[in-house]
Amino acid sequence: MGITSKVVSKLEELPPASSIAVNVNVNTYFDVLRALVDVFATRHDLYVFYISSTMPSKSIENLFEILGIDSSRVFFVDTISHLMRSTTELSDRFLYIESPTMLENIILKVEYLTRKYRDKKSIVILDSVNSLSIYNGTKILSEFLHIFVTSLRTWESYMVIVAMKEQNTPEIEAMLNLVCDEIYNATGGEE
């Protein structure tokens, strides 16, 4: 079974409103995104609220297109484009936050999407906890994840936190253990 199928199977084992951290590496990153955005969200007819803090949302959308991933159900909460002065588009599909330090605004933008697009349930993808940790201390990041994951439970959304395995510090691992229901290794080795 490939990484994409394994990640989808893992998510399907979980009840709705679960939170899971998925450890990836450079070889499995796109397979995991395909599993989340394309296969799982399509199969369960979910909106995808994608929090991008690693790459600008427009770049991610372009990559999805190249990889043949359908991104029509994806709404981006982009924390990085303003900082990098990347091209922006004003629409509900692309919501921008001035900086990855404005963690509360991530919660508020996702709440906005959840309230506005309530005809379907959603999966929220945070990509990635490691890039957020560049701009935020562990303490405030833990606080943010705790509040965010708890809020998403009440909104009955799935939460997937993407973590780059090789960049995980012991503090990040402890934080993910604390806030997530499951930690899943999608690094291509022993899962």
Binding site: T101, L103, E104, N105, I107, L108, K109, E111, Y112, R115, K116, N136, G137, K139, I140, E143, F144, I147, S151
Partner: peptide, 17 residues
């Protein structure tokens, strides 16, 4: 607080920094 087209939304302030 965030001012949005669906109205004001409110989230707890994170304590650090």
């Amino acid at each position: 607080m965030d001012l949005t087209s669906i109205g004001i939304l409110i989230a707890p302030l994170l304590k650090g920094g």
